[in-house]
Simulated scan of single mutants.
Amino acid sequence: MLLKFRLQNHRSVRDIQELTMLCGPDGGFGVPLGHGGTLRVSPLCGIFGGTAAGKSTVLRAMSTLRALAASGSDVRDATQRFEPFQLDPAARLLPTRLEVEFLVDGVRYVYGCAYKRDEIAGEWLHATDRDRRRVWFERDRTGFRCLPESRLDHLAAACEPDTTLLSLGGDIEHPWLAPVAAWLRGVRTVRLTPGARLAGGLAHLADRWSEQLTLLVSHADLGVVGVERDLLRLVHAGRTGPAALGGWAESDGTIAWLDLLAALLPMLERGGVLLVDDLDAAVHPSLAAETLRLLRDRDLNPARAQLVFTARAPFVPGTDDLPVLDPDQIWYATKDAEGATALGREPAVSQLGPGDLARELWLARQPK
């Protein structure tokens, strides 16, 4: 499970910012550690804020770190997209630093990478087991330092300056590196594009999840009473009885929500981390809120899947007056006076009052 994510000098983020999924003793899920004890980890993390506040930057950075752990070509593509903070001349000369902390089979890992265009400037992997933190390897411009028993020296000697050691270890299924690379490669980004993937996104759910899908859509106040399993069409109640309609007849919001379910439902069973940008822009807030509640349910989410998403504002409580998100699941992206994004628990205070923009436009049109 994802525990923490840190980023520095990436797009609108200049200084180190940290996002944590760890929560208080009464929140989230209890996740056992290999050496005993448990951690309380949240299945949800919402990043909220205004337009251009930097919300999407965080998700983009997480997706970039996933690419740095993928195959060599993906790593090179990621370094080609080197995007440092542009509003500070000094930051343009520094590398981007990304670091993730996560749990696999009770072992707590920290993997990080610093990169510039066509260059991996630093890379490190630490593991904590039995309350002892061990440096599996560290890398900088002078070379690699590897734990002797890891048997990574020969692999490190073959690592190119623009390739990560983790991606090489994952490709050859190195016993130490492959599980770490596999976890990072399992971080998935879903772009909700209404109308684009209804049939394709639902095709692989026809057998395994048809009953659950029917239950969800029939109770979502969409006018849908079922799913036609063979052709993957939604069945609507009509004047002469139920009628199956193709994707062309569905609303953009319905298709976007189905697209989200197509990615989310399998993850409830196998686990993983799902990244969704602008959740409330494509999916109605009430449907988005019900989707988030699926992840919070201990019985419906046995594999402890996690969702990190962005939206404009936190979702309001439903008719049952229960909050959609706990306070420790809510983060805000704000920008300071120098244009740098910061992550925090408090929302930004808007300096623009009702009608201010309209008055400014009216004044600008007046003769000087």
Rank of each mutant, 00 (worst) to 15 (best):
I172Y: 06
A256I: 06
V187M: 15
A156Q: 05
S251T: 09
D162L: 03
D171W: 06
S210L: 05
R185A: 07
S150Y: 08
L234N: 12
L152N: 04
V180N: 07
A237R: 14
S210R: 05
G170L: 01
E160H: 14
L213A: 12
L231N: 07
L215G: 14
L231G: 02
D162H: 12
R233I: 07
L245W: 15
A262T: 07
G143F: 10
A237K: 09
A263F: 11
H174Q: 02
G241D: 08
S218L: 04
L264M: 11
R229M: 05
A220D: 03
H219G: 14
T254P: 02
C159Y: 10
L147S: 06
A196W: 02
G200A: 13
L177Y: 11
D162S: 12
D252G: 15
P179I: 09
V217Q: 05
H174R: 04
L213T: 14
G195T: 12
G200P: 00
G186K: 11
I172P: 01
G200M: 03
L215C: 04
S218C: 03
L232W: 01
V235F: 04
D207G: 03
W248M: 00
S251V: 05
A256T: 10
V227K: 01
L184S: 07
L177G: 04
E160P: 06
H174P: 01
L155F: 07
L192Y: 05
I172N: 04
L155C: 08
M267F: 08
R151Q: 12
L165C: 05
V224C: 03
A244H: 11
V180T: 13
E211I: 05
L166Q: 04
W209R: 10
G169E: 09
G200E: 14
P148M: 08
G246K: 08
L215Y: 14
L192Q: 04
A199V: 14
A157C: 01
I172H: 06
L147K: 02
G247F: 03
P175Q: 09
L245P: 11
A178M: 07
S167F: 06
L268H: 10
A249V: 09
L260A: 15
R191L: 00
A158W: 08
L165D: 01
V190N: 05
L258S: 06
C146P: 03
G223I: 03
L166F: 06
V217N: 04
A243I: 15
D207P: 01
L232M: 15
L260F: 14
L152D: 05
L265F: 02
